[in-house]
Write a protein that binds this DNA or RNA. Structure first.
Length: 429
RNA sequence: GGAGAGGUGGCCGAGCGGUUGAAGGCGCCUGACUCGAAAUCAGGUUUACCGGCAACGGUAACGUGGGUUCGAAUCCCACCCUCUCCGCCA
């Protein structure tokens, strides 16, 4: 959520910056609402001051036992008091409207974000490693997985419908190994504290990080009670400190969490229908940082490097794209995508998205900090990134480490997590 | 699911219609005392918004939302949450 004060006093600037995202917004109604609200607040405050003073007198009369005096003023006060009600009602409805409008406005892109309309316009800022060379035509991960007898889409469809999968045997084990591996690196080498949060959250929580109210159709939810299945651990983990004032000395706070993620993928019909790339349920290790506002840019770089480190240790070639204004998510001020090379698809695919949200989420979720105990509370900056999407990492290993005979090499860094296993082989027969 | 208790400031805990933003205690900050510290004493210690350069003044907030009233932390209604006991259960 943007700051009303900032928006209303910098209308043109905000409109211009939002336009870079392709969002053409007329913020004039917002300004009018804010103005009306200010007038109402002042008027109500003045009335209240008068009422309060009168009531203090009434208190004295009551104490003195002056029944007649009390009666005499009661009628008069009833009128003054009653007159305030319509103004308060109007104020309440204006504030509700203001809030509603603000919740639908996306974040302002950071000045360093390149202009562009779609993912085709994202500049590549760096690459790591090289594409592996094959002396055969590399297969897709679903071909490899099914040949290994360890990836089953038909039975997944039987029990849950489209966009689900069942891993078994060595691939189920590989998935679990990846989760452990990632969490170990982030906690041991990158200084994150591991968190195991709820996977079902309230509407308020989903609003705090920006998934709601605008993107309700993307989420799965339960009925009675209404709870949302988290689309990413970002949601519960960022909301951990909602409505809190943190001690400045505690920043930056770095948390990592493994969770399943649930997405309806509404609007992506026909996209990535085969394989593990786009599922209703997938697993992810997430990185979340709460940082000092003046440090969020460098913190963003750091976070991105933490995600990249996983790919490096697995020996997977990837590149980093700076998302252009037209490709960024609703709440983000700046985003880097890590794109891993998938030989089976002959393409780079997003495996991590690392974003700096500035104070957009912290304003919604009211997450603040105090530099020193004497300072005024300020909004923290929040950041998060996948570190990494587990399913897609498994895909990357299958496709990059495949051999002509259908077996798959296990990257050395992962072998300790696989009980020393160095290769997954096609079962005989 | 059944029965009960309760939600007040950073924490504990009073208040149960009238200068109560809220006693008291703890914690924390500042000052005095001290070589220093402890102890002791004095003062201070919520957040948001409005006005003001500031000092400061004003308004709101005692789980949330309504209601009663001239006036509500205190009364009424609904909802949410927490705790205890019973049942069930990974």
């Amino acid at each position: 959520m943007l700051d009303v004060k900032y928006v209303t006093s910098n209308l043109e600037e905000v409109e211009r910056k939002l336009k870079r995202r392709g969002a053409t917004l007329d913020l004039e109604p917002l300004r009018a609402l804010a103005e009306r609200r200010a007038a109402l607040v002042t008027a109500i405050q003045e009335k209240r001051t008068a009422i309060n003073a009168a009531n203090a007198d009434m208190g004295k009369l009551a104490k003195a036992g002056d029944k007649a005096g009390l009666e005499a003023r009661r009628a008069e006060l009833r009128e003054i008091s009653g007159a305030i009600k319509p103004a308060e009602d109007e104020l309440a409805s204006i504030e509700a409207e203001l809030e509603k409008q603000l919740l639908f406005i996306p974040n302002i892109p950071d000045d360093s974000v390149p202009d562009g309309a779609s993912s085709d316009d994202n500049p590549i800022v760096r690459t790591w490693g090289e594409k592996p060379v094959f002396d055969f035509t590399p297969k897709s991960h679903w071909e490899i997985g099914e040949a290994l007898g360890a990836m089953d889409f038909d039975r997944a469809a039987k029990i849950s419908g489209a966009r689900f999968s069942v891993l078994s045997g060595p691939l189920a084990r590989l998935e679990r190994a990846l989760i452990d591996f990632m969490l170990d690196i982030h906690t041991r080498d990158h200084g994150y504290t591991e968190v195991s949060p709820p996977y079902l959250v309230t509407r308020e929580t989903m609003t705090g990080t920006g998934q709601l109210p605008k993107f309700e159709e993307d989420a799965f939810k339960t009925v009675n009670p209404e709870l949302f299945l988290i689309p990413t651990a970002e949601v519960p983990v960022t909301n951990l400190y909602r409505d809190e004032i943190l001690e400045g000395a505690r920043l930056p706070i770095a948390l990592t969490a493994y969770t399943p993620c649930f997405r309806s993928e509404a609007g992506s019909y026909g996209k990535d229908t085969r394989g593990l790339i786009r599922q209703h349920q997938f697993h992810k290790v997430e990185l979340v940082r709460f940082v000092h506002p003046e440090q969020s840019a460098e913190e963003h770089e750091k976070l991105t490097s933490h995600a990249g480190e996983i790919l490096k240790r697995l020996g997977l070639h990837y590149r980093v794209a700076a998302l252009c204004t037209g490709d960024m998510g609703f709440a983000s001020a700046k985003t880097y995508d890590l794109e891993v090379w998938l030989p089976g698809q002959n393409a780079y695919r997003e495996i991590s998205s690392c974003s700096n949200f500035g104070d957009f989420q912290s304003r919604r979720a009211n997450i603040r900090f105090r530099e020193t105990p004497k300072d005024k509370p300020r909004l923290v900056h929040t950041l998060n990134g996948s570190g990494l999407a587990v399913g897609r990492t498994l895909v990357a290993i299958l496709e990059n480490c495949q051999e002509a005979d259908g077996s798959v090499r296990i990257p050395g860094a992962l072998q300790p997590y696989m009980n020393g296993l160095s290769r997954i082989t096609v079962p005989a027969g």
